[in-house]
Deep mutational scan, measured.
Amino acid sequence: ETIMEVNLLKGPKGLGFSIAGGIGNQHIPGDNSIYITKIIEGGAAQKDGRLQIGDRLLAVNNTNLQDVRHEEAVASLKNTSDMVYLKVAKP
């Protein structure tokens, strides 16, 4: 597993990826991690090219996303300014 830091500039459609996982909404049984499950065509993440489906999202800005509820992860992604710092684990 490789840890990678990505600074992503939000586009008109936001960050351009979808997530799944978290406490109460496990993407993988027994694993509370938050995973990237979709990269949106023409979105910021696709244009940047570094994020991939299956990457594990560890942090957004200063918010640690390990062992959080799905709703908390979504809220932390929404409550960001235009430049967003992401910390991901690549499988």
Rank of each mutant, 00 (worst) to 15 (best):
L65E: 01
G16H: 00
N61E: 15
A20F: 05
M4A: 11
I39W: 03
V74L: 12
E1K: 14
G11K: 08
A44Q: 13
E72Q: 08
V74Q: 05
G30W: 04
L58D: 07
Y85A: 15
G54V: 00
S18H: 05
D55R: 01
A75I: 09
V68M: 10
M83K: 10
I53V: 11
L51C: 06
N25F: 10
A89G: 11
N62R: 10
L65F: 10
S33C: 12
V6E: 01
I36T: 01
I34Q: 03
L8N: 01
L58E: 12
I40F: 12
Q52A: 07
V60L: 10
R50W: 04
G43N: 03
V6I: 14
G54K: 04
L9H: 11
I28V: 12
S81F: 12
G24H: 13
V74N: 06
G11Q: 08
S81V: 07
A45H: 01
N32R: 05
K78Y: 11
V6N: 01
P12Q: 10
K13L: 09
G42Q: 13
G22A: 02
I36F: 02
V6W: 09
I23D: 08
E5A: 07
G16E: 03
G42R: 08
K13S: 06
A59S: 13
D82L: 10
N25A: 11
G49A: 07
P12Y: 04
R50P: 01
Y85Q: 11
S81E: 09
S76L: 11
V68F: 09
D82C: 04
P29G: 12
N32W: 04
L57Q: 01
D67M: 09
A20K: 12
V68R: 10
G42F: 08
A44G: 09
D55G: 04
G24S: 13
K87D: 03
T2K: 15
V88S: 03
I19C: 12
A89V: 12
K90E: 07
K90L: 03
N79C: 12
V88D: 01
I34M: 12
D82K: 09
L86E: 01
A20Y: 07
T37W: 05
E41N: 14
K90W: 02
L86C: 03
H70S: 06
I28H: 14
G49Y: 02
T2A: 06
G11H: 12
Y35H: 04
Q46G: 15
L86D: 01
D48P: 01
V74R: 13
L58C: 07
R50L: 08
A20Q: 09
S33D: 13
I34F: 08
L57P: 00
H27R: 09
T37N: 14
G24M: 10
E1G: 05
V74P: 02
L57C: 03
T37V: 12
T2I: 15
T2E: 07
I23E: 05
V74A: 13
P29R: 12
H70E: 14
D67W: 11
H70L: 06
Q46C: 12
Y35N: 02
Q52L: 08
I3L: 06
A75Y: 06
T2W: 04
A73T: 03
A73V: 10
T2C: 09
T37F: 08
Q66P: 02
L86K: 00
D31M: 04
N25V: 09
I53H: 06
L57H: 00
V68Y: 06
Y85C: 14
V84R: 01
V68S: 06
G22I: 01
Q26K: 05
Q66F: 10
E5F: 09
D31P: 02
P91N: 15
S76Q: 13
L77K: 00
I36M: 02
G14Q: 03
Q52W: 03
Q46I: 04
K13A: 02
N64T: 10
Q26C: 15
Q46R: 13
P91K: 03
K47G: 08
E71F: 03
S76A: 09
N61C: 14
E71W: 10
T2Q: 04
N32P: 07
L58N: 03
I40K: 11
P29C: 14
V84K: 02
D67R: 10
N61L: 02
D31C: 10
A75T: 06
N25H: 11
L86W: 00
F17N: 01
I39A: 01
G54S: 05
T63E: 14
N61P: 00
K10E: 05
D67V: 09
